[in-house]
């Protein structure tokens, strides 16, 4: 998956599931769009499906500091690098 592909999927997910339209890539999602801990858990489930692989407890804990769309994409890229190539 390229960064653009990840970004497209994440923005589409935010639009469909969270009704957050075109957020700024560096917006603080919690402060600006009401993205909360429940949404974060739903997002992790989506990321597991994108990667085709379960996240470890440690990996999930790392996600709790994420605040922006760019950080979500960084996070997914780093997870993908640590895994064998997958069709996702």
């Amino acid at each position: 998956m390229t960064r653009d592909e990840i970004m497209t999927q994440i923005l589409s997910f935010f639009r469909k599931e969270f009704e957050i339209e075109n957020p700024g890539l560096d917006d603080n999602l919690r402060e600006k769009h009401g993205f909360d801990s429940i949404d974060a858990i739903e997002l992790l489930l989506k990321i597991e499906k994108m990667l085709g692989s379960e996240l470890s407890h440690e990996e999930k804990k790392r996600a709790m500091d994420i605040r922006t769309i760019n950080q979500i994409c960084d996070y997914i890229e780093s997870l993908a690098e640590a895994r064998p190539a997958s069709s996702g």
Binding site: I38, I41, E42, L45, E48, K49, E54
Partner: peptide
């Protein structure tokens, strides 16, 4: 599936 499939909000 192998992924956790109960929604985060099902309890709430």
């Amino acid at each position: 599936t192998e992924f956790s499939s109960i929604g985060a909000v099902d309890y709430l």
